Amino acid sequence: MLATRLIPCLLMDDGALVKTVQFKKKTYVGDPVNAVRIFNQKEVDELILIDISATTQGRGIDFPTIQNIVGECFMPICYGGGVTTVDEMRKLFALGIEKISISSAAIDNPALVRRAAAEFGNQAVVITLDVKKNFFGKYTVRTHGGSRDTKVDPVTMAREMEAAGAGEILLYSIDRDGTWSGFDLTLLQTVCDAVSIPVIACGGAGSLEDVRAANQDGHASAVAIGSMAVFQGKDLGVLIKFPSREQQESIFEQG
């Protein structure tokens, strides 16, 4: 087992797989079930699936599509998007989801995190923090697809979510999303060093060297890749792919 986890992060919009750039400019990638089948063949250890329109468009959780995906998936899935209640979490876990990511609902109501952690265990509760620099260069946590600024810095928010019972943080850089320009190592290191729970780096991966830097320099416990998992390369066509076990071993030294 590799000491550091590498995870495909798939974005879903109205049942279709898409990829964004800085949370905008959506590109259609394909059917999520077909993508999952390919990741099965590549023996991926886990998967992150985020419905990016469930909250922003008030659509709620697309349970039928999730059921179809889980039915084809051989690996644990962390699902996020539109989750607002413990009852919804129960239904997702009943479908076979392994972990649930909460974002805006957790930020608006930290008590939801406490209730979820108490019922399902800390390890099952992941908090997604979408972070963007403002005009003055200050990092703040955003919700609703980046359109709402909480005015709260990510370290403060991460610590609050850890105290509420979150078992993991998915730290997503809006500025780096889909840019292939590498992770925001300053943001990563600052948040990772401020909490004791694992932090997953997300947003900006363009190469295996970027992935290594997120772990070694940014101190991320795990690394999520989006564009690298669904495109041949920057400005190239769709290709569902994932680094081989040997490639992962070459960038992550085992402890």
Score class of each variant (00 low, 15 high):
Pro64Arg: 08
Thr65Arg: 14
Thr65Lys: 15
Thr65Gln: 12
Gln67Ser: 12
Gln67Ile: 06
Asn68Val: 09
Asn68Phe: 14
Ile69Tyr: 05
Ile69Glu: 04
Val70Gly: 02
Gly71Leu: 10
Glu72Ala: 12
Cys73Gly: 03
Cys73Trp: 04
Met75Arg: 05
Pro76Val: 13
Pro76Ala: 11
Ile77Asp: 04
Ile77Met: 10
Ile77Pro: 01
Cys78Ala: 12
Tyr79Ile: 12
Gly80Trp: 01
Gly81Asp: 09
Gly81Phe: 12
Gly82Ile: 12
Val83His: 03
Val83Gln: 10
Thr84Asp: 00
Thr84Cys: 06
Thr84Trp: 02
Thr85Asp: 04
Val86Tyr: 02
Asp87Thr: 15
Glu88His: 03
Glu88Asp: 11
Met89Phe: 11
Lys91Tyr: 05
Ala94Cys: 11
Glu98Trp: 05
Glu98Ser: 15
Lys99Ile: 13
Lys99Glu: 07
Lys99Leu: 09
Lys99Thr: 13
Ile100Thr: 10
Ser101Pro: 03
Ile102Pro: 11
Ser103Ala: 13
Ser104Lys: 04
Ala105Tyr: 04
Ala106Gln: 06
Ile107Ala: 02
Ile107Glu: 02
Asp108Trp: 11
Asp108Cys: 08
Asp108Gln: 15
Pro110Trp: 13
Pro110Phe: 14
Pro110Gln: 03
Ala111Phe: 14
Leu112Tyr: 12
Val113Leu: 07
Val113Trp: 04
Arg114Asp: 00
Arg114Thr: 15
Arg115Thr: 15
Arg115Pro: 00
Arg115Trp: 14
Ala116Thr: 11
Ala117His: 06
Ala118Cys: 09
Ala118His: 08
Glu119Met: 08
Phe120Gln: 09
Phe120Ile: 10
Asn122Cys: 14
Asn122Trp: 11
Gln123His: 09
Gln123Glu: 15
Val126Leu: 02
Val126Tyr: 10
Ile127Glu: 04
Ile127Ser: 01
Thr128Ser: 13
Thr128Gly: 10
Leu129His: 03
Leu129Ser: 02
Asp130His: 05
Asp130Ile: 01
Asp130Met: 03
Val131Gln: 02
Val131Gly: 01
Val131His: 02
